[in-house]
Amino acid sequence: MDTSVAARIAANPDYQRLKSTRSSFGWTLTIATLVVYYGFILLVAFGKNLLAIPLGSGVMTLGIPVGIGVIIFTIVVTAIYVRRANSEFDALAEKVRQEVLK
């Protein structure tokens, strides 16, 4: 792609919307993932007793749903991004393509 085509695309309002929406969405989810994972690690390091709190009358502890929850969070957050990107972002990218390359 030569620079003039790139500059034309970069000036397109739909492109700018695509870039900023995707960037803020991607970074929000990235930060959420970092907070959840390193929060979990810090909890393991400094809050062992908290995770060992029993739930109910049996042996189940708070740590089990928290740990399983981190795995499920990871899968769900990935799916959320992919769903939005594959519909909204791709449609927007297609629109940019139509507008610029007609």
Partner: peptide
């Protein structure tokens, strides 16, 4: 439980790949 902590570490790179790199 410690085994679970370990496996979580192997999983959490994937969202990062998704959000910032894959496409």
């Amino acid at each position: 439980y410690d085994g679970l902590i370990y496996s979580i570490g192997f999983l959490v790179g994937w969202p990062i790949i998704t959000f910032l790199m894959a496409e």
